[in-house]
Amino acid sequence: MVPAESQVRFCFGRDDLLRTRFAIAPLIEVAAATYVLRLPARFPEHRRFVESALPRLAGLDLDLLYAVNPLGRRAWPNFNAPPPVSPHPGIADELARVARTAPRIVVEDVRRACPEGVPAHLWPFLEDPERALADLVAQTRSFWDAALAPWWPRMTDFLESEIAARARRLVAAGGASAFIDLDRMVSWDGEVLTVSSAAMASRDIGLAGRGLLLIPSVFAFDVWPRIDAPWDPALTYRPPGVGDLWQRDIGAGSALEELIGRRRAAILRVLEQPASTRTIAQRTGWSPGGVSTHLGTLRRTGFVARRRDGREVLYSRTEAGDALVSRS
């Protein structure tokens, strides 16, 4: 088992800050969305997306797509969702890249992700990687068309605004400003970007003039270092404000949102299960301070209760809060 305090350290040389760049990655969104749709209770902030996508996915054969995005593991293959090589690639171009992956790389990547032995659902990628790759590309396209394509314009607008905001920081405050507030598990000391990750063993990655690719992702539920060859080093992260992405357009909000406001309505919906302020902030992408303010209002109006559980304070909906959500 990998220790909880494991760290991936990206070591910057003289030119690496100058070569730090951003990209939107449709295939990484596909990979992350497969987890959201299979574990919807863990991602209440994406409820509207889940409700939209699941009916469209019914009846599709997605066994290989789910196989390369396995549940309950600390490592998974990368060949199906490699870091992009251009700032904003289209899905067709990215799928064409995957289709051109050398069979040797597919086999090596699957074995790397499964050092304890490759499970049966991944055997097609070892036994006939070319055919499995072609089938995976077809399944990924079907998943994209059904689940993500209807939302992609809204998602790209959101991601482009995140990249633009960080780019303005780069111009105004210098290269290191790109790393401010990426994630609470990320720290920067001027030369090394450190990512605490329980998902992989500690490693030092010398960027050696390649720079670092930063990939904001709507569906990322953690910060993901991408460090395995033959792909360039990359870091996928979740931008702030994801909780607002699925909200209806202004003027088309639900009765609950009109009554108590979009953010308080979203917090009530997140509280399907008791959660701490920090957990709610992580799920919505909002600041803990802002979440705390809204929770205070919801408590005073009788829609939320709180209790202490060890060192944490957990919030949950009251009967009045349940009734309000069920009627919306």
Rank of each mutant, 00 (worst) to 15 (best):
residue 48 R to N: 08
residue 111 R to M: 09
residue 56 R to Q: 13
residue 59 G to A: 06
residue 14 R to Y: 06
residue 34 T to A: 09
residue 68 V to P: 00
residue 15 D to I: 08
residue 86 S to C: 13
residue 17 L to I: 08
residue 17 L to G: 04
residue 108 E to I: 06
residue 20 T to Q: 01
residue 70 P to S: 07
residue 83 P to L: 10
residue 63 D to N: 14
residue 111 R to A: 03
residue 49 F to C: 01
residue 36 V to C: 07
residue 72 G to L: 08
residue 103 P to F: 03
residue 49 F to V: 02
residue 87 P to M: 06
residue 90 G to V: 02
residue 30 V to L: 13
residue 15 D to K: 15
residue 33 A to H: 03
residue 111 R to F: 03
residue 35 Y to T: 14
residue 100 R to Q: 15
residue 65 L to R: 08
residue 112 R to M: 02
residue 57 L to F: 06
residue 15 D to Q: 15
residue 58 A to E: 15
residue 16 D to S: 09
residue 57 L to W: 10
residue 73 R to H: 04
residue 80 N to W: 01
residue 94 E to F: 04
residue 83 P to R: 04
residue 33 A to L: 02
residue 97 R to Q: 13
residue 60 L to E: 08
residue 23 A to P: 05
residue 84 P to C: 12
residue 96 A to N: 07
residue 85 V to H: 11
residue 60 L to P: 00
residue 42 R to E: 11
residue 28 I to C: 06
residue 65 L to Q: 04
residue 85 V to D: 14
residue 44 P to L: 03
residue 66 Y to E: 08
residue 22 F to E: 05
residue 69 N to M: 07
residue 45 E to Y: 08
residue 110 V to M: 00
residue 33 A to T: 03
residue 18 L to P: 02
residue 93 D to F: 04
residue 69 N to A: 13
residue 41 A to I: 06
residue 107 V to S: 03
residue 47 R to F: 01
residue 60 L to Y: 04
residue 20 T to I: 09
residue 111 R to Y: 02
residue 92 A to I: 07
residue 108 E to A: 15
residue 25 A to V: 11
residue 21 R to M: 10
residue 72 G to C: 01
residue 60 L to M: 09
residue 66 Y to M: 11
residue 65 L to K: 09
residue 53 A to M: 07
residue 31 A to D: 02
residue 53 A to H: 10
residue 104 R to F: 06
residue 77 P to Q: 02
residue 24 I to Q: 04
residue 21 R to A: 12
residue 82 P to G: 09
residue 100 R to K: 13
residue 81 A to G: 01
residue 101 T to W: 00
residue 32 A to S: 13
residue 97 R to N: 12
residue 86 S to W: 07
residue 110 V to G: 00
residue 32 A to R: 12
residue 81 A to K: 05
residue 110 V to P: 00
residue 98 V to D: 07
residue 114 C to A: 12
residue 71 L to T: 12
residue 97 R to H: 11
residue 48 R to Y: 10
residue 38 R to E: 03
residue 71 L to I: 14
residue 111 R to H: 06
residue 83 P to A: 09
residue 24 I to L: 11
residue 29 E to N: 13
residue 16 D to C: 08
residue 32 A to T: 09
residue 26 P to H: 05
residue 56 R to V: 05
residue 38 R to T: 05
residue 40 P to Y: 01
residue 42 R to L: 14
residue 15 D to R: 15
residue 14 R to A: 14
residue 46 H to I: 11
residue 69 N to I: 06
residue 83 P to G: 10
residue 98 V to A: 09
residue 66 Y to N: 06
residue 18 L to R: 15
residue 88 H to T: 10
residue 81 A to T: 07
residue 85 V to Q: 13
residue 71 L to D: 13
residue 110 V to W: 00
residue 96 A to T: 07
residue 107 V to F: 03
residue 113 A to Q: 05
residue 38 R to F: 00
residue 45 E to D: 11
residue 18 L to Q: 15
residue 98 V to M: 05
residue 75 A to Y: 06
residue 95 L to K: 07
residue 76 W to I: 02
residue 101 T to R: 00
residue 25 A to I: 07
residue 48 R to L: 13
residue 50 V to Q: 06
residue 24 I to T: 13
residue 23 A to K: 04
residue 17 L to A: 08
residue 29 E to A: 09
residue 74 R to P: 03
residue 76 W to S: 09
residue 26 P to D: 07
residue 88 H to M: 14
residue 57 L to S: 04
residue 40 P to Q: 00
residue 38 R to G: 07
residue 51 E to R: 14
residue 57 L to T: 04
residue 93 D to E: 15
residue 19 R to W: 10
residue 16 D to P: 10
residue 72 G to T: 02
